[in-house]
């Protein structure tokens, strides 16, 4: 599910359109708010408040009863609703496998490719130290 928070709302919506969706309703309409982001002193010590981030959240219930929650950084309430819908669908016996296969897995692969590319560009900037040997060996 973490992969959905990294995707764009449009990408999730486009993939969901390929699935005949069951009836569902908003349990909590999308809303925007803040989350205080915390770091740790020295990176590994006691927590401290670094600053806030905008966050959207929503909750969706399928007609069959499954409840899904959607949380994501940013102010895109529709994205939170789509994540909540996916969260509800993956719990459903009828839709879990197809949502994993047609929505989550392709987005996971897309994220993997993007991160691999970035890691390769980063790796090219790694310093290779070498030692100059002076005089006659």
């Amino acid at each position: 599910m973490a992969v959905l928070a990294h995707a764009e709302a449009g990408e999730i919506a486009a993939r969901l359109r390929t699935i005949p969706l069951p009836g569902h309703q908003d349990l909590r309409a999308p809303e925007n708010g803040l989350v205080m982001l915390r770091g740790r002193v020295g990176g590994d010590g006691a927590p401290f408040n670094l600053g806030e981030a905008t966050v959207s959240r929503a909750a969706v219930r399928l007609a069959s009863g499954e409840v899904g929650f959607g949380y994501t950084l940013g102010r895109d309430g529709e994205k939170a609703r789509l994540i909540a819908l996916c969260d509800a669908l993956v719990q459903s016996r009828d839709f879990g496998a197809v949502v994993e296969r047609d929505v989550i897995a392709p987005l996971r692969e897309q994220l993997r490719v993007k991160r691999k590319r970035q890691a390769e560009e980063t790796a090219a900037t790694k310093v290779d130290f070498y030692t100059m040997v002076r005089g006659e060996g």
């Binding site: 205080m36 770091g39 740790r40 981030a53 900037t125």
Partner: peptide, 23 residues
């Protein structure tokens, strides 16, 4: 602007040791 939004909570402290390092 931040004063106009409700706060949902506080995050788990981030783990900078697990950062996907770009530099």
């Amino acid at each position: 602007f931040r004063a106009t939004l409700p706060r949902f909570g506080a995050s788990e402290p981030v783990n900078t040791g697990a950062m996907r390092v770009q530099r």
